[in-house]
């Protein structure tokens, strides 16, 4: 397992040297960004088992605030990252109190409603650019603007952030927090009857998840330099996080990265093959993946590989006997 981690780390560190050129560089950065967002979602949706379909709210806030501080006060967008996280945490706390009274599908539906509400409000609010959206600095004024032509600097920033999230998740997974999250996911009522302060630990998961999702949104805005309501607050943003995590394996450490490593190149290929006219294809692709996962392997690819591994182990044992 340790060697596996090392191999992944080395591969990710060397990627920009192996696959060069703007297409692959951008794809690599997109891949890491998708992994960051999915890993952030995974804290609440995977470990604590609360399936939010409204994480676009935090992603959108994270994406908007940096460009907002640039547009209105000409500040470097980076300064908007902590501000975005603070706003996201506040919104998460406000959303969390009423929605956590709901369980299962009802919670998921409530999160959709909140996210769509926010998207519509943002789309009609002139201060945040209404339907047109916001632009970042077109030409970098200083290094602080973090505006690079090449995707490679973003790639390494994203890699560092991803490593930090995964390290924190791994730490929490082993501790008391991860322990309670799994209990809540397995049975909220049972966890409650044992004295797990369910609300408090769900709120912790939500806050951590929202904060990192916000960070992912900020990184997106920094790299792309432009946001509009659909690309930051659209329901597809939430769905992408879920599918990425679910394809790899919900509630697993590596699932989000694995899912991103499959989905992002797939999306880049279909986009370049079919161009703008193929954008509807993305939905079809996602729908198909949801169907296949729900029908055959709700545990995602990590669970699938685990199953294959145990099966071949059993076979090997049977042969030896």
């Amino acid at each position: 397992m340790r060697w596996g981690w090392l191999a992944i780390a080395v591969a990710l560190l060397l990627y920009p040297w192996i696959l060069t050129g703007p297409f692959y560089e951008r794809m690599g950065a997109d891949l890491l960004l998708a992994a960051i967002a999915a890993a952030a979602w995974n804290i609440l949706g995977g470990y604590a088992g609360q399936i939010s379909v409204g994480h676009a709210v935090f992603y959108g806030i994270g994406a908007y605030v940096p460009l907002l501080v640039y547009t209105h006060w000409q500040l470097p967008p980076v300064l908007g990252i902590p501000a975005g996280i603070l706003v996201s945490l506040a919104v998460a706390a406000v959303i969390g109190v009423p929605t956590f009274r709901l369980q299962g599908h009802y919670f998921s539906m409530a999160t959709i409603a909140v996210a769509e509400l926010v998207r519509i409000v943002v789309g009609n609010w002139d201060f945040v650019g209404a339907a047109i959206g916001l632009m970042g600095p077109a030409v970098p004024r200083s290094l602080l603007d973090l505006s690079f032509k090449s995707a490679v600097p973003y790639y390494y920033i994203f890699l560092a952030v991803l490593a930090a999230i995964l390290a924190l998740t791994a730490h929490l997974e082993r501790g008391r927090m991860g322990y309670y999250w799994r209990a809540i996911r397995a049975g909220e009522r049972a966890a409650r009857s044992l004295g797990v302060p369910v609300r408090r630990y769900k709120l912790w998961a939500l806050l951590l998840s929202a904060g990192f999702t916000s960070l992912a949104g900020s990184l997106y805005a920094l790299m792309v330099g432009f946001v509009d309501p659909e690309s930051a607050f659209g329901i597809l943003v939430s769905v992408e996080m879920i599918i990425t995590a679910a394809l790899g394996g919900v509630g697993t450490l590596l699932g989000p990265l694995l899912g991103a490593a499959i989905l992002v190149p797939l999306k880049a290929t279909t986009n370049s093959l079919f161009g703008g006219g193929g954008s509807g294809l993305t939905y079809i692709l996602y729908g198909g993946i949801i169907l296949l996962l729900a029908r055959f392997e709700p545990g995602g690819l990590i669970e699938l590989s685990r199953r294959i591994a145990t099966r071949s182990l059993k076979k090997a044992k049977a042969r030896a006997a």
């Binding site: 309670y180 799994r182 044992l194």
Partner: peptide, 18 residues
């Protein structure tokens, strides 16, 4: 209402939560 995905010992430890 056991936590069927977890081990016997983990279930017991969860009982000591409070």
């Amino acid at each position: 209402r056991l936590f069927v995905g977890q081990t016997v010992e983990q279930n017991l430890r969860l009982g000591a939560t409070a």
